[in-house]
Design a protein around this nucleic acid. Structure first.
Lengths: 231, 231
DNA sequence: TTATTACTGTACGATTGCGTTTAGTAAATA
DNA sequence: TATTTACTAAACGCAATCGTACAGTAATAA
């Protein structure tokens, strides 16, 4: 009987004592996680129960327990898996350097594409359902997700400000404002299921308009009479 | 045996045939709803189950069923109750007329106060947990909440634009941008439990800065060299 | 080969929660 | 008073789900 992998993230089963008997099968580990994720996506957190996961992943129930300890552990692992995909997506955000406006637009489009994805929405829903229990998961995702993105964006804005492309400002606040303008009320709508996913053109328009407002509001002093296309 | 009140909102038990026998007790209806709400607030949606509600409201289980049909009906009723409180709060938003800037700031502060409240966060969490089932609830809340607020705000901006206080613009988009700037990433944080509720000063600062950015970006043409304190 | 560990399938015990039933009491009208 | 409806308390049947136990098979190291 293997020691439960309770606290483990998404890596395929820690080598517990480097192998006397039959080694654990990483494929099973992955299959369980995949099935769990799929199940949660296709409904609420209610759909994510051990028996369904075992059935869907073609694995014995006992194996699920031996890999993840208990249901909490499985949920944890799913959230952490989603989180790692999230951070990967956020790390892959474009960082082209052909002008501030274009860079922001590209970044915004990619970001909004991700924020509108089923993956992200499902993760947020999961955290919302988890309210009260496992609060640290929410904190973790928030830090590595929203805050990290804001700070990365803020760094860009600070650079631009240092170059003289923007007036002096509180970059973190400005970054948050830009993120907010990009999202508008859409995130709320997606999360509550109140509005359908916007298409790419709509998304692009929101991103561009948000960038425009930010550039105009934070334009260097005296340069805001007409839009500076060079930035 | 009374006919289940399944689809009913929060009004205290429709007079079914205007009284032969003992009349239904509105106080019980209210007590059940209150207890249900309290239970949901104090945890996840898991805590909201019939037996707990009956116990907490000091009412027989059968009475709960006779008032709300089944668990779905109870959940529906709780959501609709929260929604009605939400719309009431949004209708009470200040609409003072001493200058655009001041009006927006006041409105923003009141709005953000509400958006940060436990009531609102719990409602959003509930809808997020309900993903897949009862989608119309999410749609309803989204329409009466986020969209209605956006449109009301948009109307203000359109008026200002007509008065010449703002340049011509897409008011709905601008309203959404302002809402977004006010919220930033905070709503996400609150929903996932990742960040604590911000205090009033922090809130006020965000609101004021958001208004400033909007006013500057949408200032009438040629008037954006220096901030127009008269608006 | 033997010891050890991973995995399967099935069954089990326990709990929980839904929704119903029954028998009786309380409050209203005719 | 008789009737009708609302409410209570307790119990029941039922299904889902958790987590575990057991007996057997599969894969690997010593």
């Amino acid at each position: 009987m293997p020691t439960p992998d309770a606290g483990a993230s998404d890596r395929p089963a820690a080598p517990r004592s480097a192998g006397r008997g039959r080694p654990p099968d990483p494929a099973k580990h992955a299959a369980i996680l995949a099935a769990a994720r799929r199940l949660f996506f296709s409904g609420s957190i209610q759909a994510l129960n051990i028996e369904a996961v075992a059935r869907a992943s073609g694995v014995s129930k006992v194996t699920v327990y031996s890999h993840f300890g208990d249901l909490q552990g499985l949920i944890r692992a799913v959230v952490l898996l989603q989180r790692s995909e999230m951070t990967a997506a956020l790390d892959d955000l474009p960082s082209g350097q052909r002008g501030l406006r274009q860079a922001l637009i590209e970044l915004g489009c990619a970001l909004m594409g991700f924020l509108s994805s089923d993956d992200y929405v499902a993760l947020q829903r999961m955290l919302a359902s988890l309210a009260g229990q496992e609060n640290w998961l929410g904190t973790l995702v928030y830090r590595d997700g929203a805050e990290a993105t804001r700070d990365r964006l803020a760094a860009r804005l600070a650079e631009a400000s240092a170059r003289g492309d923007l007036r002096a400002h509180d970059s973190r606040l400005a970054a948050e404002q830009l993120l907010g303008m990009w999202q508008g009320i859409q995130t709320t709508g997606l999360l509550s299921g109140g509005c359908p996913r916007p298409n790419a053109e709509e998304l692009r328009r929101r991103v561009e308009c948000g960038v425009e407002v930010l550039l105009r509001a934070y334009a260097p002093e005296g340069m805001d009479r007409k839009i500076d296309r060079s930035v």
